[in-house]
Structures are given as C-alpha cells and as structure tokens.
Design a protein around this nucleic acid. Structure first.
Lengths: 192, 192
DNA sequence: TGTAGCATTGGCCATATGGACAATCCGCAA
DNA sequence: TTGCGGATTGTCCATATGGCCAATGCTACA
C-alpha cells in the first residue's frame, strides 16, 4: 500500500504541474502518466477518472499556493507591510511562478465545477478573515483610517490584489508603482 | 459574397456563445456549426481552423463586453457614481450574464495566446486611461482625495472591480456592501 | 445562355483520447 | 511453500475531433 500511495501522489504532482504548464484542457491522462513515470493505465486504477484526478490535483495545488499569502496575512505587522511585500513580489516577477498559471486555470474550472468552487470559496473566505483581523489591528493602532468597516477593507484589498494579479498577467508592461502608492496613501488617510 | 459574410458571422456568434456556455476547451467545430445552422465543413472554408475562429470570436465578444464599462467610465459624473453603479450591477446578478463567463474564458486563454493577449491588454489600458481622467476630474472638484496619483487610483480601481468580479464568481455568497462602503469612504477621504 | 468564381455540403480519414480489462507481478501472512 | 489481495502493466476499443476535399449549387456578369 505504501507503493500504491506513492504512485498516486506522483500522478497528482504530475497533473498539477501539467495544468500549470499546458492549461487544464490540454492535459491528457497519457501526458500525466508519462510525466509521473507510470503507465497510463495507472490513472484508471488510482482514480475514478480524469476529472477526479485533475480536481484533486488542482485543489491540493491551490491550497498549497494559497498557504503563503494566508500566512503572510496572519503574520504581517501591518497592512502596509503586507501590501508592499505583495506589490514587490508582483514587480519582481512573481507572476512567472507556475503557481500563478495554476491558480488561474483552477479558478476558471471552478466556475463550472462546484466540487472545486466550494472549497476554494472557503479558502478565500479564510483569507479575507485573516486580512480583516490585520486591518482591525491597524485601525486600533491608528495606522489605518478607522472610519471604514474592516471587513470591507479586507474584501477590497483581497479583490485588489487578485485583480492586479490578473491585469499583470494580461499586461506585463503595467506599472504597479502608482497603484501601490495610491492604495497605501488612501489607506493611511493621507491629508488632502 | 453577402451570403458568405453572413455564414461567417453566424459561426462567430455561435462560437462566442459556446465559449461562454461550455467553456473554451469544450467547444468543438461541430458544435459551433450546429448552433450556427451550417454544416461543419463551413468552418474549414471560412476560417484557417478552430483556433482562428475561436480567437476572432472571443476577441470580438470581449471588445463588445468591455464597451459598456468603458462608456460608463467616460460618461460617469464621478468615481463614486461609477463605483456605485458597478457594485449595484454586481449585486443585482450581473455576474450571471454570459459575457462574464466569456470574459473569464478569454482571459485564461489570452495568457497562453499572445495574439489574444495583446489586444486585450490594449483595451485594459484604454479603460484605465478613461478611469484616470474621471479620477482627475473628481480630484479637481475636491470630491476625491487629491494627494494620490490619479493613474494609480485608476489602476487600483480597475483591479479592484475585476478582482471583485472574480471573487464573486467563485463565491456568490460574498457580500459586497462592506467593500463598497469601504472603498467609497476611502476615496472620499472620510475624516478618521 | 454560358461560364467563371465563390459558397455550400457532406463524406472521409488520421489521430488522439479516456477508459476498461485481462494478465502478471509482488509482498506477506498462513 | 502456497494462497491471497492489492498494484502494475500494456493492449484493446469505442468515440470524438479537426481538417481535407471533391462534388454540387448558386449567382452575377459577359
């Protein structure tokens, strides 16, 4: 059974990598098996079918990809620090990380597959919650405008970061510095 | 030639509709032809191939879908009006519009197809530009915090709206009202 | 009326894909 | 050693798909 689990995991890893590299729909069970180094018949044995394998692989990879931002939100000392770090990561080419392509592929698929959408929606919810806590802490310290609802700010920041990610993937020329300056300025409540 | 153009257009329309309904990769040349009411051989005659047809259909549909927001940005009296209108449209179920699914499908594909990505990036650029003009007008009127760069605010708003769209598609339960209140409050420079 | 050129049509084919399955292998306990 | 159950392997098959093309239709113009 030890060996069986290893083969299964190899298939999952190969599937996740291929989703990011070639796109969800271009992935074939044969390509997955080839990359995993197992015969393609193994797919039928270890999974219900292609959909089952891809769903599980994508969900696992997505959880892994979202762990970093979630940890950052939970550990960051301030919203400004979180935003600056994320903007810097974007600017430094973090978008070339295969995980970004994988996330986009999974998000698209999730819109059509509820078994994929629901858990991802829950993860997004957790992320917004961690962010809201951070916002609240900043507001109490006076480091962030206090007259706005913390959960709203958190939802807005989460949407902003993902939207910027999307725009950057579509237009790598986009300069994020003005946007970063504007957001940080607005959140700090700069005097007019 | 009149008839030829009509058949061609029917194929484009059918392709765009199917992209939104079934997803890019599930679209087949036969399904397109069937919906257009023409034999499947017509695809080979009027287009270079499936990729060519899908690309042209998606680009046309995307341009059409982006026309409304662009016009709104150009005609809106203020940023607050634009945002309120967009948030209201989201909340009213604008996300069930097939155009939303089509946009997401096209965006995903554009990441892998430069012939699709480049023109869409240009459209996004135009949208940000129209938005920046609106922001500048608001800043001059004093209706919007003036100490932040207008192009940055525009890029942030554009990203925010698209990011929120994405989050809402993934999680229809998400309440956008707190986010709307937060963003409008921050932009107005509410006193702390 | 004839004909040239574009449009239409449906059949055909090579290919790829997902899945099923029987044969075989392997480790372990009786 | 023997038997058993899970794991592995490669083959086979039904199906769908994209694209090609030859035959046919149609219309405008000479």
């Amino acid at each position: 059974m030890e060996q069986g689990a290893a083969t299964r995991q190899a298939l999952l890893d190969a599937a996740a990598a291929l989703i990011a590299e070639t796109g969800w729909c271009a992935v074939t069970t044969r390509a997955i098996a080839a990359r995993a180094g197992v015969p393609h018949g193994a797919v039928s044995y270890h999974f219900e079918g292609k959909d089952d394998l891809l769903r599980e692989a994508a969900l696992s990879a997505t959880r892994q990809a979202l762990a970093a931002p979630l940890a950052l939100a939970a550990q960051a000392g301030s919203v400004a620090e979180l935003l600056s770090g994320t903007f810097a990561w974007y600017a430094a080419g973090g978008l070339s990380d295969p995980a970004v392509a994988q996330l986009l592929e999974t998000a698209r698929e999730a819109v059509r597959d509820n078994a994929l959408r629901a858990p991802i929606a829950a993860d997004l919810h957790d992320y917004r919650k961690a962010l809201a806590d951070l916002v609240r802490r900043d507001q109490e310290r006076g480091a962030l405008v206090g007259a706005v609802p913390a959960d709203g700010v958190a939802a807005a920041i989460a949407a902003l970061l993902d939207g910027l990610l999307l725009h950057l993937v579509l237009d790598p020329e986009l300069d994020t510095r003005p946007a970063a300056a504007a957001v940080l300025g607005l959140l700090a409540g700069e005097p007019q």
